[in-house]
Amino acid sequence: MQKIVKSATAGTLESSDVYVELTPSDGGNEIEIESVVLAQFGDAIRKSAEAVLKQFSIENAKLKLIDRGALDCVIRARVETAVLRAKEG
């Protein structure tokens, strides 16, 4: 397991982008999603975010996504960026 040591953000609130906020938490991963396409893609967004956290073995993250209709590859990129930023010493 990898520890997140600090908070980090990535992305923007522009159309087709997603703003990601990552903060350390004590009990497991917690994902909160706000999206203009929540009904259509809420589950898919959660799955992608979980997959990236798992890829980096993150288990203590509170992740908040404010999505403006970002494509899957953008969501994954922004979460990864936030994770890497949060892991920096």
């Binding site: 990535a10 590859c73 994954r76 990129a77 960026t81 890497l84 930023r85």
Partner: peptide, 15 residues
């Protein structure tokens, strides 16, 4: 720079 690198990589891979 880090964000753009990851974004471009994903975009080339998936788009």
């Amino acid at each position: 720079k880090d964000a753009a690198r990851i974004l471009v990589r994903n975009a080339i891979r998936d788009m």
